[in-house]
Design a protein around this nucleic acid. Sequence first.
DNA 1: CCGTCTTTGTGCACGCGTTCACAAAGACAT
DNA 2: ATGTCTTTGTGAACGCGTGCACAAAGACGG
Lengths: 242, 242
Amino acid sequence: MATGRNHRPATRSRGIPEATVARLPLYLRALTALSERSVPTVSSEELAVAAGVNSAKLRKDFSYLGSYGTRGVGYDVEYLVYQISRELGLTQDWPVVIVGIGNLGAALANYGGFASRGFRVAALIDADPEMAGKPVAGIPVQHADQLEKIISDNGVSIGVISTPAGAAQQVCERLIAAGVTSILNFAPTVLSVPDGVDVRKVDLSIELQILAFHEQRKAGEEAEAAAGRKGPDGDMPAVMPA
Amino acid sequence: MATGRNHRPATRSRGIPEATVARLPLYLRALTALSERSVPTVSSEELAVAAGVNSAKLRKDFSYLGSYGTRGVGYDVEYLVYQISRELGLTQDWPVVIVGIGNLGAALANYGGFASRGFRVAALIDADPEMAGKPVAGIPVQHADQLEKIISDNGVSIGVISTPAGAAQQVCERLIAAGVTSILNFAPTVLSVPDGVDVRKVDLSIELQILAFHEQRKAGEEAEAAAGRKGPDGDMPAVMPA
DNA sequence: CCGTCTTTGTGCACGCGTTCACAAAGACAT
DNA sequence: ATGTCTTTGTGAACGCGTGCACAAAGACGG
């Protein structure tokens, strides 16, 4: 989860742990940056710093993919970029539909990271007839009526839902019925989907709430420390004086 | 998660596990919905379904907060809403600044989930002088020059970064220097921060890449099954015929 | 060809998170 | 008051993920 998580226990594909898969895109990004600077090789230590992880973890992660490093030297950047891209399935490009072109949907459509990394926005879909035909990020918005046709015509298997919460489950069901098997959900709802469909959820307010929790904890500890820990053990939460 | 993760091993606050904290907002949302429908009590099983988790997990999560249920009956919805809100620190409201008012920043500013759940957008900040004064979501955008003043005047401790990747680290440092101690980062970069500062990361393209991985795996398994698993054990990844 | 030095790949131990399964607790009817 | 029935709260087992620490592998210089 940036994120909330929502995947079944899942029979690990070729033995690659889920936690490792979640970090591969991170490594890929760091490696791409190195590649653009024409750096030929990189050590696990350097790459780990760039990706913000522990170097032992990084080496173990790579070991699941195979032995792509050279002892005493490090990893060949280009080769590793290729291997990770391949493992993630980014050597093919994935057509994606975005449903719900409000503020967030438009932001997603404009997001450069899509096109650059193996994804192609096949269509933007909205339920509002007024939106139909209007170009967003250079792509004309299409009406929700067309959803099924667009998906089957383009062989779309990944859908992004950025509708209001109320519409999400229904949109989700139509996407799945039309052939989509992976969904990235931005609507603040729990989607129920049949087995075999993957859902990942991104929820802005949840992330903020988690931050708030830690923030409150910090403030509480501070206050406690300042007061010389006079409170017993704190059954009541620390209350901030205005 | 949606999310990438990025928190230190962290001395658990009052013994509430990080994983539990991450689910509290989920429970809170489900409970709020029940509250709005005036449902007085709910069982762990019902609530678990609504939140999309295992009921044993939910009970254990709640047990970290205290014994707020009644055996044979369930949990009092209103009371639980209050307890979780309090635990998450949502009984006070947190001023938040959003830095980088592009498509995404605007979407965030317009996002209803903020105001409704304990957060208040104290200011929108952008480096582009052209943006200054323009209202987004009813709030006038202010120039980045004002950043430090805004933060100290409003006592902001949570910042949201939705700038391009290149500007993120610099913005991050200014936020921290000005007093921010929690950051929600939407820019596709690893932020390095001093101890005591929490960073959570939301990365759209990473989420999509994880989906692509699973999607590829599904396609590979399908092809393998169709071919009667004729491949040895697959050193090469399954390749999709066009 | 050999020794040294760097860096990988991994065995191992530990801790967190999840889930099962059940005893304890209470509501409610009689 | 007593028994039944529902649902919580949690002890215990298990599995995954993490990080240490080191042996094996190879580059590189002499």
